[in-house]
Design a protein around this nucleic acid. Structure first.
Lengths: 362, 362
DNA sequence: GCAGCAAACTATAACGTTATAGTTCCCACC
DNA sequence: GGTGGGAACTATAACGTTATAGTTTGCTGC
């Protein structure tokens, strides 16, 4: 036990900036707790007790201090608190990438929920690069965020490093199987259900050769999806095929063009993508090789982005409550911060049938 | 002088969370600079000098300290540095809202540029609410971010409060005319050019009644756009009309439905929106009242989102280098952090003509 | 050989906060 | 009336860092 996370040294990158800030820059005097205490005529400790609703101070003094705080516009300096307590009043949100609008709503839900709880949010995008993930993790640790919501890429090293270094709460987003030895909350889309819905939909339309576009194997969420997809072959009668592609639009178009250029005997008639973003790559590739989406080839996306229904043809997609996913992740983290244990939330999906899926060409 | 920002008291909201974190929570011992110093056999000060490339320490010791730091996996604790120096190694990015994908690319460019410079980024979304903007500003100040990139809503009070409280650098994003008395860098889309391009395009197609959809007057960016739009009436022969609407899709559809229900004698034949996001509201409204976009009514969007060319009909839009905008904002901030003065960058636009704009119905 | 001095290093204080240990004061109790 | 004890408050130390002041060392120049 206790093995499996040895990459600590690689993360010894200083998170502080290296710019040569003007040393002569005027430093404004800040209004500190002792200023408040002086104004209220009590000691700093008493003021601290008063503002933090701790016992050991009379109601009169408590009121006096609070009034002085408002009067002076006092706001506790996070660095002071963090230095003393190890808590910064913020949580970290470390996501796979910021270009996919999927995460935008997740962020919104997460952010709004944290804001309600008075928690700050520090966002970092790993951009699908493990080294960047590790780097961001270091800055989160160094900034002493109180909890971490992680949509991981790569192995479980980030999660275990976090755990070892901080012993603070962690929530996995869309990584059900990730790092099973770590006691983390888990919030994720029901990807098995999603794949099942998509395949059933296509099989129901008559398709027998179905392909799933997924990112290379390091990305655990896609891993799981691929597993479910292949497993469905036993249950539903169809020929499964996986297409591996990077998440970038242009790279995906390349790969997909190759697949769609195959003869009509072998190429898939139905394509399932892991995002609407990737689905538009199928549109581009189909157009490049002279095939019509919704006629010659069917496409089922994933996420149901706001604009997907305006695509031409409109995109059949698996809808997910992204905002709710973000809210659930934040709540799980907040519960843990409050002393509760870890929890697991599975967010259900709904297939929205539109024009991009149709019976296969005969 | 020195007047005009009196809302300091409203911001006395404690930015720290109020959750009752388990006091019994184990606090991991962190590896500190003194640990490194001990390992290297020198004083803490010497270690500090060594790692910060300051004079006053021999090359041998410098090497020894750096080695020890790597060995121990030392990362400077931000709270310690911030407490001592007032610098946190992070900058704040305070944007209008996180739902509009426009800002996503801006964030990406900003984030990537800051990451390169070793700067952390703290993102906050004001969600078009002045009080939220003020609140976030307080947390940014309390967290001692080293600089602020602000896409402001409402008046200049946030900017001047930032300036008064911190005297640190600030960059305005898409707010050319905002708070002219403040010495800030300014990075913005050439909105005058954008409006001119859109109007010229529509007038060139034969339109004479053109409407501009803009947010209520508090949003300074739209303010400016509206000004340019109205001013163009002198130069180009057309009847200008402004439609005021909130930025939310459903609210916009309501307003636009009313406008499009007017008789064909009075309703605008060309509509210019301030975002592609809002343009889809025109699509919905047109569909609701039985008009066809690209036939009965022309629409010009703004931003040229990735999915806009897949809309049906494909959307004519003003393309902006959003990522570049984010990069420019980050650079301006970084330059100021390096001691340089403020700068101004105007990002040009390009009109991309597609199917949603056509000659007006006869 | 000793004053003078720079280079290399160390000791210390301070940033703002909170937890702990200590102090004062008042009141109840024997 | 002294004592025990709790409530209300204060003094102090510590979190990790860096800037300043202070100390030691070695070397140059007369």
């Amino acid at each position: 036990m206790g093995k499996g996370h040895d990459s600590m040294l690689t993360a010894a990158i200083a998170p502080t900036a290296s710019y040569e800030w003007m040393m002569t820059m005027e430093r404004r005097r800040r209004v500190s707790l002792s200023d408040v205490a002086r104004a209220a005529g009590v000691s700093t400790s008493a003021a601290s007790f008063a503002l933090n609703s701790r016992p050991g101070v009379s109601d009169t003094v408590r009121e006096r201090v609070k009034e002085a705080a408002v009067q002076l516009g006092y706001v506790p300096w996070v660095s002071g608190v963090a230095l003393r307590t190890g808590r910064s009043g913020a949580v970290g949100l470390l996501i796979r990438n910021l270009r996919n609008p999927f995460f935008l709503d997740v962020i919104n839900g997460f952010d709004a929920t944290c804001a309600e709880a008075g928690l700050g949010v520090v966002i970092g995008s790993a951009d699908y690069t493990p080294s960047r993930e590790s780097e961001l993790l270091s800055t989160f640790i160094a900034r002493e965020v109180d909890g971490l919501a992680l949509a991981p890429i790569g192995g479980g090293s980030a999660a275990s490093r976090w755990h070892d270094a901080t012993a603070k709460p962690i929530v996995f987003i869309n990584a059900a199987q990730h790092a099973p030895d770590i006691d983390a909350s888990r919030v994720h889309v029901d990807s098995e259900g999603a794949v099942r819905q998509a395949v059933k939909h296509l099989v129901g339309l008559g398709h027998s050769r179905i392909a799933l576009v997924a990112a290379p194997k390091e990305h655990s969420a896609d891993n799981e999806r691929t597993g479910c997809f292949l497993a469905l072959q036993g249950e539903l009668a169809f020929e499964a095929r996986t297409i591996s592609s990077e998440m970038r639009h242009d790279r995906a178009v390349e790969v997909l063009t190759n697949v769609l250029e195959e003869s009509s005997e072998t190429r898939p008639t139905g394509i399932i993508t892991s995002s609407d973003y990737l689905a538009t790559a199928v549109y581009s590739a189909a157009s490049d090789v002279g095939l019509r989406v919704g006629v010659d080839v069917s496409v089922v996306g994933h996420d149901d982005l706001a604009t997907s229904r305006f695509l031409s043809p409109s995109l059949t997609s698996i809808a997910v409550d992204r905002y709710g996913l973000g809210v659930a992740a934040a709540r799980a983290l907040i519960h843990q911060l409050g002393g509760a244990g870890t929890s697991t939330v599975v967010v259900p999906t709904t297939l929205i049938a539109r024009q991009s899926s149709c019976p296969p060409p005969t």
